[in-house]
Design a binder for these strands. Structure first.
Lengths: 229, 229
DNA sequence: TTGGATTAATCATTCGATTGATTCATTCGC
DNA sequence: GCGAATGAATCAATCGAATGATTAATCCAA
């Protein structure tokens, strides 16, 4: 709980300590004295630097977003539907998207970066039941993911209406997010605290599952095709 | 927050009030006075009936599980692989499973049963970051779902190894659970607080998406319309 | 009358916030 | 160039409110 927090200015130390504690015990379960102690700082500095506990929490969320500029937003643009080669580009873009999104969620898992790990836990909880003050921040952060994925889906399944496409997107994102959020219980079920040992295999599973689920014909050539007449 | 809690004995009133408050503000964010007040009871009765706040919380979890015996466990048995007709039965069982699981998660959404709705929220949070004392309880509850789904998957994809089947199961469950857990944010993104207006359509989407993602040949043709079933 | 159920009152802690004093580097007056 | 003044940063101490728990008295049906 109290890794040797050596460097940095007090404000940053408070922020990182807050990430760890908020992730471990939630907003209400964490006291500012607790946070300050781990940061080798005085609890009054929470009010001084962040205008109180709630302000600190909001700054924590902003810091988490700032720490890792979303990898997905930097993927190649998808040519608009109808453009020659658009479909092949979208197929490639879709695979890149899932891989990037998955690795972004899993990046700090099992690594030697406890703050990054805690940040992900904190984010997951905030998405599920957001503090009222942080809803706008969350929405703004989610947006690039939604639009990027939607762009791919529109090209890959131009026949679907808007609501069907939306459901596809939710399912695709959902399986990945759930995998990350429930990793704790999943490991208990598997009886293997180190699961997944082979991350690349899991990534490939999510890509395959999503492409097939989406109904992309290119992904169909599968073992034993037999029309059901 | 305080619907007219008229009937029942004090113990039950405390339990239901606790479900509402714990779901709304979490364990640490909720005070026993708050709970007792909504239940028209004295806060000291929490210690008397439940041996304190933590005891009340554990009883709340048990009460939630007891309230709704899992619908999925009561589905028809799947004949073992190899048995004639096993595949068709598994296909049907799989569809029934997803429908039952989805409706179980969504049963209290938008209904006039705020306690059931709160129970679902509370469960979701507990699954994601379980209180240490409740891990055994959760594992026991999850078990029938895992085994039931696994049985179907083994018959439908006998060519896959154990880890691949497990990934399939996690993805299938995950999309549904995520849909339920993130319904709040999903509605914000959609800009429609009443989403989904047509639940049956969403159920059908999850069935189709899962069958295709799983790679069941019967679900392949006509990715644009309904599965041939 | 007995015993479980319920009550108001109080317990010691802990909470987030605030205060006023102190430290220290920078800047300004001269 | 040097002492005084400035203002941000940090500190120990304390505030009132709220926490979970406990107690002793009271209520009431059996």
């Amino acid at each position: 709980m109290t890794p040797p927090v050596l460097p940095q200015d007090t404000r940053t130390r408070l922020l990182e300590s807050a990430i760890l504690h908020f992730a471990a015990k939630g907003f209400d379960g964490t006291g500012i004295r607790e946070i300050a102690k781990s940061a080798n700082a005085n609890s009054a500095l929470v009010a001084y630097h962040f205008c109180g506990k709630e302000g600190l929490y909001q700054e924590v969320l902003k810091a988490i977003f700032a720490r890792k500029p979303c990898a997905v937003a930097e993927l190649a643009e998808i040519p608009p539907a109808g453009t020659p080669g658009a479909r092949k580009a979208a197929l490639r873009g879709f695979q890149d998207y899932i891989r990037a999104f998955f690795q972004e969620l899993m990046s700090s898992t099992g690594s030697e970066d406890p703050v990054g790990e805690a940040a992900m836990i904190l984010m997951a909880r905030e998405m599920q039941s957001p503090r009222a003050a942080s809803v706008p921040l969350l929405m703004e952060q989610i947006k690039p993911y939604v639009t990027n994925l939607t762009n791919c889906l529109q090209v890959l399944r131009p026949d679907l209406d808007e609501e069907a496409l939306f459901s596809m997107g939710v399912s695709i994102q959902g399986q990945i997010i759930h995998f990350r959020n429930s990793l704790g219980i999943i490991r208990l079920i598997r009886g293997n605290p180190a699961y997944p040992e082979d991350i690349e295999r899991v990534v490939q599973h999510h890509i395959d599952f999503s492409l097939r689920g989406l109904g992309v014909p290119e992904a169909f050539p599968q073992p034993r095709i037999q029309p059901c007449s």
